[in-house]
Amino acid sequence: MKLRKVTAASAVVLALAVTATACGSDDKKDSDSSGGGKKITIGIKFDQPGIGQKTPQGYSGFDVDVATYVAGKLGYKADQIQWKETKSADRENALSRGDVDFIAASYSITPEREKKVDFAGPYLLAHQDVLIRSDDTAIKSPSDLNSKKLCSVTGSTSAQNVHDKLAPKAQLQQYPTYSACLTGLQSKAIDALTTDDSILAGYASQAAFKGKFKLGGLKMTNENYGIGVKKGSDLKAKINTALEAMVSDGSWQKAVDKNFGPAQYKNEPAPKIGNIVS
């Protein structure tokens, strides 16, 4: 009889312990869902100065500033952000796998990509352009690139697009990195570097290249940068609201000036949410 009483008491204690543990789990879940106790993981580029760059001092660039602002509006402080490198070829997979909550990484909105992910924005309208030496007066239009040495990174379609559609006699030069192209541009081994003007402005804004290069202003394509989220995610609407606030309170223009200003980047006005320029 005494043994049975002890067993019954133990059962009560065990039941209480299980209940307490369950309540504790619910409390943690509630805390996480509010943004107050968990982290948010954001995909960015790590190797694009002015856009998204990992440095010994931390992370910098226009996309980093935009993502930090958006995260703040979602309820996350800067120290609750986990930055994850998302290379161009892996962006859709990173979202579908759940590796990141959203991606801000010079991510152009295209019909093909919209089949796989949802986009908030756009938050920047960029254009394919060329970067040339600051004393260059010969390149004023895409056709002026004919017979010029045109550089882009290995595997990029930017230089090929110019060659195929606008300057068929351009001499394509493929270098492993944009930095290598810049070195070639500085030494006159190449005449122009081509990719998105925002990326070019970011590189030209580096202290080592200040005053040495300028954008051609050719505006050869339209690149609508959006923030990628997993297909069907309710984050899209929340991020759009945050982007609208960033523009209205002046934070968007400040981020543009800070990251691209040294290259005298003539940015387009902040695009309206959902307005994709073809």
Rank of each mutant, 00 (worst) to 15 (best):
Ala270Ser: 15
Lys140Val: 09
Asp79Ile: 05
Ala208Ser: 15
Ala9Val: 12
Gly202Lys: 12
Ala17Lys: 10
Asp164Ile: 09
Ser33Val: 08
Ala126Glu: 12
Ala201Gly: 13
Ala201His: 02
Val70Phe: 08
Pro49His: 03
Ser198Tyr: 15
Lys28Ile: 01
Leu74Asn: 06
Leu172Gly: 04
Thr195Phe: 13
Pro111Phe: 01
Val12Tyr: 08
Ala159Arg: 08
Thr86Phe: 00
Thr41Asp: 09
Ser179Val: 06
Ser233Tyr: 12
Phe46Ser: 11
Ala192Tyr: 02
Ala104Pro: 00
Arg91Phe: 00
Lys266Asp: 15
Gln173Tyr: 08
Tyr203Leu: 13
Pro49Lys: 05
Ala89Pro: 05
Asp101Ala: 11
Asn224Met: 12
Thr221Val: 05
Asp129Leu: 02
Met246Asp: 07
Ser198Leu: 10
Ser25Glu: 03
Tyr265Thr: 08
Asn93Arg: 15
Ile132Asp: 11
Ala192Asp: 06
Gly43Ile: 06
Val153Pro: 00
Asp197Cys: 05
Lys230Phe: 03
Ala89Arg: 14
Ser147Ala: 13
Phe119Pro: 03
Val18Gly: 08
Gly202Glu: 14
Pro111Asn: 01
Trp83Asn: 14
Val18Leu: 12
Val256Asn: 09
Gly37Leu: 14
Asp26Ile: 03
Gly43Pro: 13
Asp257Pro: 09
Ser158His: 09
Ser179Glu: 15
Tyr69Leu: 02
Ala189Ser: 10
Asp249Met: 02
Lys212Asp: 13
Ala242Ile: 04
Val100Phe: 01
Ser106His: 05
Asp27Gly: 02
Ser205Val: 12
Gln171Ile: 15
Ser147His: 14
Ala270Val: 08
Ile132Met: 15
Tyr59Phe: 13
Ser108Cys: 02
Asp99Ile: 05
Ala67Tyr: 03
Glu85Phe: 00
Ala120Asp: 10
Lys236Asp: 04
Leu218Lys: 10
Thr68Arg: 11
Leu95Thr: 14
Met246Trp: 07
Leu3Val: 11
Ile42Thr: 09
Tyr178Asp: 03
Glu112Cys: 02
Asn275Cys: 04
Asp47Ala: 01
Pro122Phe: 10
Ala15Leu: 14
Lys230Asp: 01
Asp196Met: 07
Glu112Ala: 11
Glu223Trp: 07
Leu200Thr: 08
Ile273Asp: 10
Ile199Gly: 00
Ala15Glu: 02
Gly232Trp: 03
Ala78Val: 13
Gln264Ser: 15
Asn222Arg: 11
Thr194Leu: 01
Ala71Lys: 13
Lys140Phe: 07
Ser25Asp: 04
Ala189Asp: 10
Asn161Asp: 04
Lys115Thr: 06
Leu166Arg: 10
Gly36Val: 05
Thr21Val: 09
Asp191Phe: 06
Ser34Gly: 01
Met1Ser: 12
Gly261Arg: 14
Gln48Glu: 00
Gln174Leu: 12
Ile51Thr: 06
Lys73Gln: 15
Asp79His: 06
Leu150Met: 07
Leu16Phe: 04
Ser179Trp: 01
Pro111Val: 06
Lys77His: 07
Thr19Tyr: 11
Lys210Gly: 09
Leu3Thr: 08
Leu145Ile: 13
Ala9Trp: 11
Lys116Ser: 03
Glu92Cys: 04
Ala192Ile: 09
Gly98Met: 02
Lys236Ala: 04
Ala242Ser: 08
Ser143Met: 12
Ala167Asp: 02
Ala189Ile: 04
